[in-house]
Each structure stands twice: as C-alpha cells, then as structure tokens.
C-alpha cells in the first residue's frame, strides 16, 4: 500500500469515527434519566467515601496519606469514580451483534465494524465522563472544598484520560468479541468491572496498597487506566506524565494486538444464516 493510499484510508476511518460520534452525541439527550440515576449513585458513593477518608485521616493523625491531603483524596475518588462511572458497556452491543448476526450487515458498511463501534463509544463515553466529572466536582467542592490543580499536570491528565478511554475500548471490545467463542460474555464483563474497581485503585490509591498487591496492580492495565489519570490530575507538576503514558502505551499495544487478532480469527468463524 502506498503512503498516499494509507493516509487516505486513515482519513476515511477518522471520518467514520466522527460520523458515528456525532450520531451518538445526538442520541444522548434521550438518556437523561439514566444520567440522573448515575448522578444520584455518584453522590452517595462520594459522600460515603468522603466520610471514610475523613475518619481515616483523623485516626492516623496525619495530614498526608499516600502523598495526598484529605481534600486531594476526596478529589482523587471523584476522578476515579467519574472514570469508572462513565464506562460504556460496548461488550454487550458487540456480543448482541455477533449473536444476532447483525455483524454481517455491519461489515458491509464502509469504514469497518470496530471503527464505527469506537466512534459511538467515544462520543457516549465523553458525554458520560463530562457529566460524571462535572457533577462529581460540585459534590467534591461541597464536601471537601476546592483543590489546586497544576495546569501542566491537568494537561497530562487529559492526554492520559484520552489514552485510557482508547485502552478501555480495546479491553471491553475484546470481551464482547469473546461471543465468537463463548455462550455469554456478560459475566466476563462483570468480572472485569469488579477487578478493575479493586486493582485500578478506584477507592484507595495504589500508593496505599500493601507492597505485594501494589506490584500486582501496577503490572496490570487497570492502574494506569484509572489511578494514572486521577493521580496525574492532582500532581504538583507534570513529572509523572511520562511513566503513566508509557504504561498506557504498553498496555494499549498488548491489548490492542490481542483484540485485533481476536477480531480477525473471530470473523473467520462468522456464519451468515438466512437473508
């Protein structure tokens, strides 16, 4: 393939992602009720976690735990909760497409099936994340007060969040593609959400894990995907940026390759029935 043709294909894929993202963004208005439910759940979680960390700081008679003050800890859990609550279950949609045979029709459309799914995922994820972070920030502000955010660290956190969204798409889409081989991928997705809750450092920063558990958590993709952007956002400067990005890129390379291989071999098993 010539470099010109490759550039043309990439531009075409970008247009497909953009088109699916815009359609999904328009659809989001229909799910305001679901967003409101998410807001109420987020409020309860943040309130309880704020009580927990307030009591912990008081019991430890310390102003700093894991390198974070109480105010920063409240904002840390706000960021991590926003990241996990904005998760989009694209695995269920891919699973349905494979099971119902819709995948065969989707493959006929230009731009590629996973590219289209990625565009829709990205738009929905951005809307959910903006809502969760915005609402969570109001709650965190009321519970703990304002937090100082370094502009360079914030920029790093934004980049890391973007990469984390791409990495999570690769993981969740990979789970959905499991429908080519297994009866039910919903239990795998459920397990993924639970394990990432613990090993991603959602409720307790990785710095406060026992040593052995911290080593395991850092070796898996969950920590750079959840703990990484949240910790970067609260860093005094951008020094942690490169290590977070490096972990995300390595995870993305490994998971992305696995997903691509799984997709190709899955397509070979695709059987179209009926017309």
């Amino acid at each position: 393939m010539t470099p010109r043709r490759r550039r043309g294909m990439l531009a075409h894929r970008a247009r497909v992602i953009g088109a699916h993202a815009i359609v999904t963004l328009r659809d989001q208005g229909a799910y305001l009720g679901e967003l409101a439910l998410g807001g109420a759940i987020l409020f309860v979680f943040l309130f309880v976690l704020s009580c927990l960390w307030t009591a912990t700081f008081r019991a430890q008679e310390s102003s700093l735990l894991g390198g974070l003050t109480l105010v920063q800890m409240t904002w840390y859990v706000t960021f991590t909760e926003a990241l996990v609550m904005s998760r989009v279950n694209v695995a269920r949609r891919i699973d349905e497409d494979i099971r119902t045979g819709n995948l065969a029709h989707a493959l006929l459309r230009p731009g590629g099936y996973l590219t289209a799914r990625f565009g829709a995922y990205l738009a929905e994820r951005l809307v959910r994340f903006a809502f969760s972070l915005g609402f969570g920030s109001v709650v965190a502000l009321a519970l703990a007060g304002p937090v100082v955010i370094d502009p360079v660290a914030a920029l790093g956190a934004i980049v890391a969040t973007g990469l984390a969204f791409v990495l999570e798409f690769a993981i969740i889409a990979g789970i959905g593609l499991g429908a080519f081989w297994t009866e039910d991928t919903s239990s795998i997705y459920f397990l993924y959400t639970r394990v990432s809750l613990l090993l991603g450092g959602v409720l307790i920063p990785i710095e406060l894990f026992p040593e052995g558990a911290a080593i395991v958590a850092r070796a898996l993709p969950f920590a750079p995907m959840i703990h990484g952007p949240a910790r970067l956002a609260l860093a005094p400067d951008g020094t942690g940026f490169l290590s977070v990005i490096a972990s995300l890129v390595v995870s993305l390379t490994v998971v992305g390759t696995m997903m691509a291989v799984g997709y190709r071999s899955g397509l070979e098993r695709l059987t179209v029935q009926g017309g």
């Binding site: 009591a55 613990l198 307790i204 406060l208 894990f209 558990a213």
Partner: peptide, 12 residues
C-alpha cells in the same frame, strides 16, 4: 478492598 484498607490502617 476492606482487607487492603485495614492492612494499611488497622483501626479506624
């Protein structure tokens, strides 16, 4: 999660 928590903070 609570095991991790209390490993680090034995009593709250």
């Amino acid at each position: 999660f609570w095991w991790l928590f209390f490993e680090r903070f034995p009593s709250v």
